[in-house]
Design a protein around this nucleic acid. Structure first.
Length: 221
DNA sequence: GACCAGGCACATC
DNA sequence: GATGTGCATGGT
């Protein structure tokens, strides 16, 4: 393992923390809301997700029993603002079905499941991919699983921490192998990446105006 | 009106 | 295994 990259992964964290301060993230009040948000935010602006979640709350269905009993059609109508509403209604239903079938419909029952087993169970649910699974593990269940998203990839590649075309698990390893295995740290790190990402790391932006401008830099992808 | 946003599954080659 | 495509709303 390259020690300079090990340093960089930590320096990146320090730079972000200096620039943005602690984020105390995920925007959601309860583990249930976090899980629902993790599915709804797939390829979608968080503001749209908030609208959908607030409609679920108003309809008083933001709990696992109601979500289980609610027809997919009605669920889709409620989450419409989040986009891909038919797909996401099906994905939520798949998660809810798994939670009731395998774990009694209560997230608390997941606390005793070993992390590896839990992650592969989540990944076996149709509609839950690696980012959604890791977001659920980290932000709803407090498990140390580093979340990789589009911003993480752009920043890592642009700053020379990873090669263009690196896959999800490769990218995740780069961070996990170089950081203490702590949920609180992973939580804060990903939150900071999203904070800088939203401001400066759009598809076309090149990370030159951002607070990381002086951070060791690639020529860009 | 074009482009983008905290993915994922599925088809096709 | 890599690449392309459908899914959809709301903000800039």
């Amino acid at each position: 393992m390259s020690s300079s990259i090990r340093q960089s992964v930590r320096q990146l964290y320090e730079s972000l923390l200096n620039a943005y301060g602690p984020q105390g993230w995920w925007p959601g009040d309860s583990p249930t809301e976090i899980v629902v948000g993790a599915i709804l935010t797939q390829n979608t602006n968080w503001r749209n997700v908030e609208k959908a979640i607030s409609q679920l709350r108003q309809a008083r269905v933001l709990n696992w029993k109601s979500l289980r009993d609610l027809p997919a059609r009605q669920l889709a109508a409620l989450i419409r603002p989040a986009g891909y509403y038919n797909v996401k209604a099906r994905r939520l239903k798949n998660f809810v079905g798994w939670l009731w079938r395998e774990h009694g419909g209560d997230l608390k029952n997941l606390r005793t499941v070993p992390a590896d087993k839990l992650r592969s169970e989540l990944l076996s649910i149709n509609g839950v991919g690696p980012e959604t699974a890791d977001s659920i593990l980290l932000y709803a269940l407090d498990r140390p699983s580093f979340v990789v998203d589009a911003y993480t990839r752009r920043i890592a590649v642009r700053h020379g921490l990873a090669k263009v075309g690196v896959g999800y698990s490769g990218l995740q390893r780069i961070f996990e192998a170089r950081l203490p295995r702590e949920a609180a740290l992973y939580n804060e790190y990903h939150a900071l990446i999203v904070a800088v990402g939203k401001k400066h790391c759009g598809k076309k932006a090149k990370c030159c105006e951002c607070p990381l401008a002086r951070f060791p830099h690639n020529s860009d992808n």
